[in-house]
Design a protein around this nucleic acid. Structure first.
Lengths: 228, 228
DNA sequence: TGCCCGCATTTTGTATACATTTCAGCGGCG
DNA sequence: CGCCGCTGAAATGTATACAAAATGCGGGCA
């Protein structure tokens, strides 16, 4: 079960690599993704590439037009806003459910991620920090115990990174106080509070995004130091 | 553009057929989906089948275990509850946004679906009625203008049908008064009201589900005559 | 008798080959 | 001069072939 599962499937590897390329911006929006080229570039056949592209399409990273190929999806400012709206709906639900169901071990896991994040902050390791952030939010969803929510949210994390990477080439420093507050709300089992903290967290992320893109200023929001 | 797009891809056809088989219950949860058999049964090669299975996996209808094949996903009572929680979060968001952005033509479209549903009701055509229901909710999402929300919600409709089909072999009669109320809220541009109507609608659907499965009764809910 | 190991079958994963379609370029025609 | 249709290349969609892994079964052994 340990070594056996380690045999990664090519489609997974291709999918992860393409997702990374898209998120990092190496594959710009609008870029045509020709199966032959990708297969040659990655040293595999077209089949795993096709399957990976389909997965990425279901996650919204690429758009597949029948018989015309795949292109990297465009992320308009409007779509970024769309993402924040959906995040607010789903993450607030996740926080509420997590607060309802969290036990001691779950809280411990959350706390350990915060500790790891603190160490990453001290070390100045921004990639590790981003990973911690993703892990924390995914953990909240896991704790919520809602499998369907997990199915929907899992691909969303990458999309969030993508939006921020596109709009903010240099990553902003991250405030983890909101995460701590969310942890406390979940640990305390206060559903209402957890939901409101999650909403505030996403709102802060949106404000940060808006400030970075300089499109609109958001009066009344003082949180501008998150990157998720 | 009309006839050209009509050239359906095999993977789409396979996907729709498999989805239909799963939702209708002809493929029971836990059934192993062997690629060869499906390909032979549908008269295609394994390739479109594989791609269709991946899509269905991302929609949560099947579960793919690496190197061990695909099986029809199990729907536990808990997962059905999960679905209702997610629906409440996403459909309330859709309703709120639709109320914010709806214009006269959008309202007209919604109204025409209600008219169609009324005709289907008179004709006793339950399949058409179910289609109207799906169309109505998808239309609300479209009107919301949130592309990402649309991406997430589109596959959810089938899942809703699946849950009800599994738990309630005979379809319950449908109350369209809630839809009318939602239409009025959206037409009036009242975001708060639209959101609360949507929440109530999903809550009613949940109550209906619980009553059909006979698991728990929900005091305080008088709506028990919807099937979505 | 019960357990473990090895082999054959089945099935998935990947690669390659072929068919069909789209698109760009270009020449002819009105 | 502009539009239409044709043709060739390129890319997708589909089918088939091969390799590797997992499952199930039977025999051997303690």
């Amino acid at each position: 079960m340990t070594i056996g599962t380690a045999h990664q499937l090519l489609r997974s590897l291709v999918c992860e690599e393409l997702r990374r390329l898209v998120i990092s911006g190496e594959l710009a929006p609008g870029t045509r993704l020709v199966e032959d080229r990708l297969a040659a570039r990655l040293g595999v056949s077209r089949n795993p590439v096709r399957e990976a592209l389909q997965t990425l399409a279901s996650e919204g990273f690429v758009e597949i037009l029948p018989r015309r190929g795949a292109v990297v999806a465009e992320i308009t400012a409007e779509q970024a806003e769309d993402l924040f709206d959906v995040r607010m709906a789903l993450e607030s639900l996740a926080a509420r459910l997590a607060a309802r169901r969290a036990d001691a071990t779950a809280v411990g896991r959350l706390r350990s991620v915060l500790v790891k994040a603190g160490q990453a902050t001290d070390a100045g390791d921004f990639d590790a920090l981003a990973a911690c952030n993703t892990e924390f939010h995914q953990l909240v969803v896991d704790i919520s115990g809602n499998d369907y929510l997990s199915l929907l949210v899992a691909p969303m994390a990458g999309r969030v990174q993508w939006v921020f990477r596109l709009s903010a080439p240099t990553r902003a420093p991250h405030s983890w106080t909101e995460h701590e507050e969310l942890l406390h709300a979940i640990a305390g089992g206060d559903e209402e509070y957890a939901e409101s903290v999650a909403r505030a967290h996403v709102a802060a992320a949106r404000a940060s995004y808006r400030q970075l893109t300089g499109e609109r200023s958001v009066p009344g929001s003082l949180h501008a130091d998150t990157d998720d």
